[in-house]
Structure formats: C-alpha cells, structure tokens
Design a protein around this nucleic acid. Sequence first.
DNA 1: CGACCTTTTGAACGTATTCAACCGATGTGG
DNA 2: CCACATCGGTTGAATACGTTCAAAAGGTCG
Lengths: 259, 259
Amino acid sequence: MITVTSTGGNRTRPLGIPVVAELPARAQAVPCGDCAAREACLPAALPPAQWGMINQAVCVRQHVRREYALYRAGEDFNALYALRGGSFKSYVVGEDGRDQMTAIHLRGEILGTEGIAAARHTSTLVALEDSEVCVIPFGVLRRLSAEYPTVQKWFHRLLGGQIVSNAGMIALLGTGRAEERLAAFLLNLSRRFAARGYSPREFSLNVTRHDIGSHLGLSTETVSRAFSRFQREGLVRVWKQRVQLIDIAGLKRSAGGLA
Amino acid sequence: MITVTSTGGNRTRPLGIPVVAELPARAQAVPCGDCAAREACLPAALPPAQWGMINQAVCVRQHVRREYALYRAGEDFNALYALRGGSFKSYVVGEDGRDQMTAIHLRGEILGTEGIAAARHTSTLVALEDSEVCVIPFGVLRRLSAEYPTVQKWFHRLLGGQIVSNAGMIALLGTGRAEERLAAFLLNLSRRFAARGYSPREFSLNVTRHDIGSHLGLSTETVSRAFSRFQREGLVRVWKQRVQLIDIAGLKRSAGGLA
DNA sequence: CGACCTTTTGAACGTATTCAACCGATGTGG
DNA sequence: CCACATCGGTTGAATACGTTCAAAAGGTCG
C-alpha cells in the first residue's frame, strides 16, 4: 500500500489561498486488515484472501488537515474516498453565495458519490478535524464491481443507501418544527456515533450554528435558541461545539416521530 | 417480449381493497426499438444488435391504471421499472399517518431505486394516469451490468443522478420561501417535460394541492395562495390541476436562484 | 340530488426570521 | 503586554411568513 501524506487539498477558511497538494509518496504497509473502518469499506465485500490485491492496486491513503478541502464543487470526479478516520462536512454554495451544509460524514463512510452522475463533483468536502481517507479510483471500483459480485452488491447498496438517506433528509426538512429537526439531527448523529463504537451520548463536531442551521433550513439564531431550550429542559448539555445528550428519550419525544 | 396486462397492483384510493395483480401473459412483439422512451432506458446503453436480447430476457411490460400502486412501501424489492408511458407519484407515510409526496416521475425515468439498499421498497408508487412500465428484474440488470461496461456506466449514472437530484431537493427545502419553492417546482417539471418532447409551457398533473404541499413542505392553503398569486401576477394560468406557464422568466425570478 | 373531496379565501394565531446588542474567545499588531 | 478587531454564540424585540381554523364554492361520482 502506498501512503501519501499531503496537505490534503486547499485550506478553505482564510480566503482560500490555493495550496497545491504535495504528493511525496512514502511507502508504508498499512493493509486493510489493520483498518478500523474496514467492516464498512470495500474489503468487507471481498474475501480476505483478496485484500492484498486491494492494498496494492486500490488504496492510496491521503491525509486532510482540518479546514482543508478533500475536493471542491466543480472539480473532476475520478475517485471515491473511504473515510478512514476523522470527519467531514459537505456543503454547496448557491448562486446567491449562501452556503448550505448538506451532510456530515463520519468514519467508515464513503465520500464522493455525488460526483458519479456528471463525472464532476457537485459539492465541496471539508475536513472537520485532521482526517485520513483511502482513495478508491473509480475505474478500479468499476472493474472490481464487474468482476466480483460481492463488490457489485456492496457498491449498489452503497449508492442505494445514499438515495434512501437523502430521502430521509427530505422528509425531515419537509415536515416538523425547528426543535424537532434539531432533535432528529442530534439523534441521527448519536446513532451513527454509536454504530462506530463511539459514545452515543457525547460528541463534538467542529461545525458552527450557522452550518447546522443551513443544514436544517433554520437560521443561526433559531438553532441557538433550540439548543438553549433543550439545555434548559435538561435534555442536553451544550458547551461550545461539544454536546452531551442527557435525556435521549426526551429528545426522541422532541423529535416527534422524525427520529 | 412478453406483455403482461394486469391491474398493475392495488388501488389506493378507495380504502385499499387488495386487488391481486392478474398475470395472464399475452405474448406481444413490442421491441425496445419501437419504444418512445428508449433513449433514456436500458437499450441506450447497449448496441442495437443486443436489443433483441433485452426484449426476450429483460422486459416484461406491465400496465398500471390510474390510482393504482406499482408497489408499496415494505414490499420486497426485486426489479426496477422503466416508465414507458404515463406518470407516477411516490410518497411515504410517516409514523403519525401524514403522507408526504417525495417525487413525481415522468416518462423515461427509472423507478424503484429506493428499494436497492434494503432489498425492500421504502416508498409507495402510484400511477397518476393510466401508465405502462417495463419490468427490469434486478438480477438481470446486475448480470448485464457486470457483462457490459456500457450498461454498468448507465446504471451508475442512473443511481448517481438520483443522489444529485435528491440533493437538489434538499437544497430547495432548506432554503427559500413558499413561492420560491412552488416556482422552482413548476420550472423543474417544465424542464423535464421539455426534455421529453412535451410542451414546457403547459401540462397537467393529477396531484392535489395537498400532494404538492407535502412535497414542498407547505400546507395545502399556502400552495393554493401561491398559485393564486402567480395567476394574479400573470405568471401562470391555473385551471384545476392543469397549469400553463405564461411568464417563465418571471417564474425564474420568483424562484430566486432556486430554479 | 346528495355525499364527499378539492380548492379557495379570510382571519387569527404561532413560529421562525430579522435586526440589533452584547458576551467571550481568539488572534493581531503596535 | 494591551488595545483592538473578528468571529461565533446568545438573547431580546419587532416583524414577516406560513399555519391553523373556519367557511363556502365548485366538481365528481354514486
């Protein structure tokens, strides 16, 4: 396996000075077998005997520092990315300049599928913390998919799962009040953290109230007020961008069936 | 090719008396080459020399009468459906019983992808008019996809396109006022009708204001008021469920960048 | 015709947004 | 080191928008 240690793209925050990713390849043996995210990743679709093949032919690891972009809307699509460690947010920028966070991605998820249709990325992906991804060139995935039915099935489920989860988001946005949406958002994260072996009751995300608001179709102030209210009611403890879910059952009630 | 003329599922409206689909197969030669929707369908991914193979192995045509369901949420998934003629709406029913229309499907679109992930349909698909679909068994599609790179590419673009269009819907719901949403909805339909050779300026859909409202996250009354206002401003002519777009540029202005 | 559904419109209400001020943390430059 | 600017977050007050409740008109179908 080849490990590429790079800046991981362009920093987004300080007026986006283009920092070309440095690519000084440094060979390092970190096979899929050692990867904490492998159960959700491509190897899960192949017998372990084939992992060596993936290690050599497929995966190139890439570091992305916090606040830096893995890719940006408009760039050519040519690979998917398995999120090995860390987290990302994806967002789009409307014609009027307003940005809208479209998703939060946690370890084990596959990034980049939104670029498949047009062979061009339609959103921008920024690391919320120092993160690491494995690059899966799309051509390789196509080939493996044609060759191994298990890979094909894995890939179809991956894409289908994104369709379903997007549909869930549509349902969330099309119904429910501000607090229901925020509660559903928190519970969704809680479930996903739990599924990855992290605590479902306490986590922190480097996203602003503005990000959350744009994600849920709410204003910054409304998000803040909803957090305050949840805290006043003893449902959560909020400390800056760290959140502790105290009364999950109560939150579910607040989510009103949207959980 | 086998043509199956059936009731096409269960009628939804009158208290859902289960009408089992009758399946009196009646062989009829209607090859893909004669299909008006073929450019968007599977044959587009195969050389015409292979169409005969599809005709024999893949497609089973099925009629679905207006108000009847092609499939329902919870049913097993085992095929995709190419919409040969007519139109469908898909909707989900929340835990509280509220229904929400999630999409409108027009001729040439492929239906059923939301069932891939869980091998079970997550929404219900109801014909808005007497319609006709070609059944594409998923196993066959998997096999063709592995065998023909062009089919694989077609299928990947299909799924990727749904991800992108769902993301667009999320953007629509997360931002914008009621009239912006309705204008964007109408313009979206207009563009899709135009792409299929129908008039982009006049169309009719058998969906109620309630359906549209649930789709856009608005109440029935708000949809009605927005239509009335558009008509007062000379942007559209509305006559029951038929709508004529008079001032498309004005509608785009009303959509405010969401078009 | 009568029952039912859809649509429209009005009025009162409720919720989220907007505008604004303030706080605390962070970072910069003199 | 401190003054100052910036940014994210919080909170209050006024406003705008969509919902809800209510009534009535028009259509459709038995």
